[in-house]
Design a protein around this nucleic acid. Structure first.
Lengths: 245, 245
DNA sequence: CAGTGGTCTAGACCACTGT
DNA sequence: CAGTGGTCTAGACCACTGC
């Protein structure tokens, strides 16, 4: 029965080829999100391999976050759920140690010309177009962060056609839904500065008071830079938490 | 032969208990860095379990970075190479983007009574003894960080017998060498505060100027808290960088 | 209860390393 | 070559889920 398994590369281990095969079922929509895939027993029959081999292939996809197993219920295709990873790129905390996602309010989203530093960070060539997003983040209608965000116009042009109110509180799921761009990792640099007049007014603090400046460069799964952003918040209410592993 | 495996918790899966057992061999130095551990065949005999079970336990330790497998050669205990991971717990950068490890100068290292918050963080019971280390970190003889560090007296008592000058620039390799305690992960919380008189004087800044406060709790491979530390530095020269994956 | 994934066994054969 | 880890088999029994 081994001939049932397409031998994409006969030199690859069986469980690898099985994993690729199953990945195809998911990406092609043959196995749909939130639905159970065939049971291990079925899969062993379908592919003519032992349970251990099926398990190893499934385990790979579980580790990659594409499948989810639940004892006694089955194995399910994960809807790219940002519920679980909501906080992955979000490191601000309230004083009592809880994380609360602030509301996002996009003030502007338009084509613009980035500075050289930002263009370089995004690997833009000299005349590549870009989009600038100005955004506030609020908790209980109080501004806690002022954000300046840059993305390349390609493939983010779809953002220009959207109502500003249509932007969600989290941009990354938004990028994925409307532009097909998933964020895989990011690099943040955090410094402390004095508030300039603009930022001070928006944040409701006195000019010259300390602010925290977070510059983030976010990357896709192919490690290409996708988004540059700078967030500024009042230092006295600021709390940034990170796990180092 | 299953009785050969200490049943730390009989409800845990066998491969978990095996992994813990093997972890003990490593941390206790019974299996030494850069040396091969017994082959799979030997381990199955020693512990009286099937190869698959041994493999799963070994795989866990490989995933945790403690073992390394090499086909045809054997499985080796990894020397915690601080060469590559020197910067793993070190996130301060100079303005030009380079990382430079500051010198460490231990001012005091003595038994002391921690606050309740620190005792709780370290999971100390009411009368467990602790050690406090006061330390400066300097670049070009300029103080850039003031650190207060707490570790449990057990198993860190060896630190009390050392000359202060004997402490290296990096404490974690030091802990490992003298106390057999390896740091596996840490959690940091970063806030901005105003400098009190003490810190201001040590850091050479004006009292009330903003300082960055980093509180870190570091954990061992068994996820038990090992070290609490608070580092304070002047905000204007501060730069903190992190990769989020 | 039947069906699912979770654990575990007791092997087999292969690919690779060092001598 | 003998010995190692890498892959794979063909099951068994258990714990959990939902009906």
């Amino acid at each position: 029965m081994k001939s049932d398994i397409p031998l994409h590369d006969a030199r690859l281990p069986l469980y690898q080829r099985l994993r690729d095969e199953m990945l195809g079922k998911i990406t092609k929509g043959e196995w749909r999100p939130d639905r159970a895939i065939p049971s291990e027993a079925e899969l062993t029959k379908t592919y003519g391999v032992a349970t251990g081999t099926i398990r190893k292939a499934v385990e790979m996809l579980v580790a990659e976050g594409l499948l989810e197993r639940s004892q006694g219920r089955g194995t399910f295709v994960r809807r790219p759920s940002f519920d679980g990873s909501l906080f992955r790129f979000f490191r601000l905390m309230t004083a009592n140690g809880k994380r609360r996602i602030p509301d996002g309010r996009v003030l502007e989203c338009a084509a613009a010309t980035p500075t050289k530093a930002i263009a370089d960070a995004l690997h833009l060539r000299p005349h590549d177009a870009a989009i600038r997003i100005d955004r506030l983040r609020l908790i209980d209608d109080k501004v806690i962060l002022v954000e300046e965000i840059w993305v390349p116009k390609t493939p983010f042009a779809a953002l220009l056609d959207l109502e500003l109110a249509a932007f969600g509180n989290l941009l990354y799921p938004f990028y994925e839904e409307h532009c097909g761009q998933a964020i895989a990792s990011a690099q943040e640099t955090l410094t402390v500065d004095a508030a300039d007049a603009d930022a001070a007014q928006t944040l409701g603090i006195v000019e010259g008071k300390p602010v925290v400046v977070i510059e983030r460069l976010a990357f896709g799964y192919d490690r290409a830079p996708i988004e540059w952003r700078r967030s500024i918040g009042a230092a006295d209410t600021f709390r940034y938490q990170i796990e180092i592993c």
